[in-house]
C-alpha cells in the first residue's frame, strides 16, 4: 500500500472540498423561503473541448460541484459531457413547486431563463426548472449566478480550517525553496562528477600516448 505520509498528504484534498467557492447549502424543504424554493436536483451539460465557451462550465464541475455535493448530499447532481462544441453549456436547476422570483424573470440579473438543453432530464409534474447559459463565463461568475438564482447560503470556513489552509500555503512556499536548494546540490554533484571524469580521461590519454 502507498506510504502513509503520501496518503496523509493526499487527504489535503478533503479540506479543498470543504472550503472554497461552492461551499454552500442549497435551500432544502426545511430551509426554503418564498423567494427561494427547495432544490431537488441539478444538471450540467457542456462540451468536451473548451473552445466555444465551454471552459467555465467544466471548471464549475471540477471546482464547485464537489463542494456543493458535499454540503448537499441529498441533492441529485448529474453531468453530461457532449461532443458538440456548438451545443449548449447549461446548468439546469430543478425547484420543488414554484420557481423563485429571480429565476422566473428570465435572463435578468441572475442570467437564468428558459434555455433549451436537450440532455437535461425532464422535470416531473411538481418540479419547475430554471437554466443558466454558462457559455463564456468563468466558474466564479457561474457560481455567483447560481447563488443568485438558488439563494444558496455559503458555509463559513472554520478558523481551524483557515489555519490549516495557511499551513499548506506555507508548506508550498517551503517546497519551492527546498526544490531550488536540492537542485543546486545535485548540480554541484553533477559538476564534480563531470570534472572527475575529465581528469580521468586525461590520464587515459596520457597512457595511450
Amino acid at each position: 500500500m502507498v506510504n502513509i505520509f503520501k496518503r496523509i498528504h493526499k487527504l489535503r484534498a478533503l479540506l479543498n472540498v470543504r472550503i472554497g467557492p461552492g461551499a454552500a447549502t442549497l435551500p432544502s424543504s426545511s430551509t426554503a423561503t418564498k423567494d427561494f424554493p427547495p432544490i431537488t436536483r441539478l444538471h450540467l451539460t457542456y462540451a468536451r473541448k473548451i473552445y466555444g465557451g465551454h471552459q467555465g462550465a467544466r471548471h464549475f464541475w471540477r471546482e464547485c460541484l464537489p463542494r456543493l455535493k458535499y454540503y448537499n448530499p441529498g441533492v441529485s447532481m448529474s453531468v453530461k459531457q457532449t461532443t458538440e462544441q456548438d451545443g449548449p453549456a447549461t446548468l439546469t436547476i430543478y425547484f420543488d413547486g414554484e420557481v423563485s422570483k429571480t429565476s422566473s424573470s428570465g435572463g435578468g440579473a441572475g442570467g437564468a431563463g428558459a434555455e433549451t438543453d436537450g440532455y437535461a432530464p425532464a422535470a416531473t409534474s411538481t418540479e419547475k426548472t430554471a437554466s443558466i447559459n454558462l457559455k463564456d463565463l468563468d466558474y466564479q461568475e457561474i457560481w455567483r449566478r447560481v447563488q443568485a438564482v438558488t439563494g444558496a447560503s455559503a458555509v463559513p470556513s472554520k478558523p481551524e480550517e483557515e489555519a490549516e489552509m495557511a499551513r499548506y500555503k506555507a508548506l508550498r512556499g517551503k517546497a519551492q525553496e527546498d526544490r531550488a536548494r536540492v537542485a543546486s546540490i545535485r548540480q554541484t554533484k553533477r559538476d564534480q562528477e563531470r570534472m572527475l571524469l575529465e581528469a580521468r580521461g586525461e590520464v587515459e590519454r596520457l597512457r595511450q600516448a
Partner: peptide, 22 residues
C-alpha cells in the same frame, strides 16, 4: 496509523460522493 485521520463509513461515503459527482 496514529496520524492517519479515520472516518466513519457514512462520512467516508459523503466525501467519496463529492469526489465522484458527475
Amino acid at each position: 496509523l496514529k496520524d492517519m485521520e479515520k472516518f466513519a463509513l457514512c462520512d467516508a461515503i459523503r466525501y467519496i460522493r463529492a469526489f465522484e459527482v458527475g
